[in-house]
């Protein structure tokens, strides 16, 4: 599970908050990484994984805290640019780069938590904190399902 985001930009920390929660709830059962800023690091984080969950904040206009789920295993996620990025690739492009190089995990699921406030120094808004909790719960259910399938 890879949490993506910026800890100091309000709801952009949603992916990092999910990572923290998954780490607390699942312990060593799930390998948790965080990726702040430069997303090609995702590709190295995928090494050795069959199943990957990537969680980032999104801004699509949906109500704050809405949890979007995209299965990236077979095709690109809807927007190549999950997060507006200043001078690097976006998450969607990093996933596609991994796919082109044959390094995308067999199952790759992206959760996007709808953010509302991306100001420097802001905290997670309550609705987004709630979305973080729901994302972590859903993600762990999916992990459990994958594990029992095996």
């Amino acid at each position: 599970m890879i949490g993506v985001g910026n800890a100091l930009r309000g709801d952009d920390a949603a992916g990092l908050a999910v990572a923290e929660r998954v780490r607390a709830l699942a312990g060593e059962a799930v390998a948790v990484r965080v990726c702040e800023e430069e997303p090609t690091r995702l590709i190295d984080a995928f090494d050795g994984a069959d199943i990957a969950f990537v969680v980032d904040a999104v801004s699509t206009g949906a109500p704050a805290g809405t949890v979007h789920r995209f299965d990236a295993s077979g095709s690109p996620i809807p927007s190549l640019e999950l997060r507006s990025s200043t001078h690097a690739l976006g998450i969607g492009e990093a996933l596609e780069l991994a796919r082109a190089l044959g390094r995308l995990p067999r199952t790759t699921v992206v959760f996007g938590v709808e953010g509302a406030e991306f100001t420097s120094g802001a905290r997670l808004t309550p609705a987004v904190a709630d979305g973080v909790a729901r994302t972590a719960a859903t993600l762990l259910e999916e992990v459990a399902a994958c594990t029992s399938e095996r």
């Binding site: 200043t86 001078h87 690097a88 690739l89 976006g90 492009e93």
Partner: peptide, 8 residues
């Protein structure tokens, strides 16, 4: 290579 050269 300015800080805006991001997206394709």
């Amino acid at each position: 290579d300015p800080c805006i050269s991001c997206a394709t």
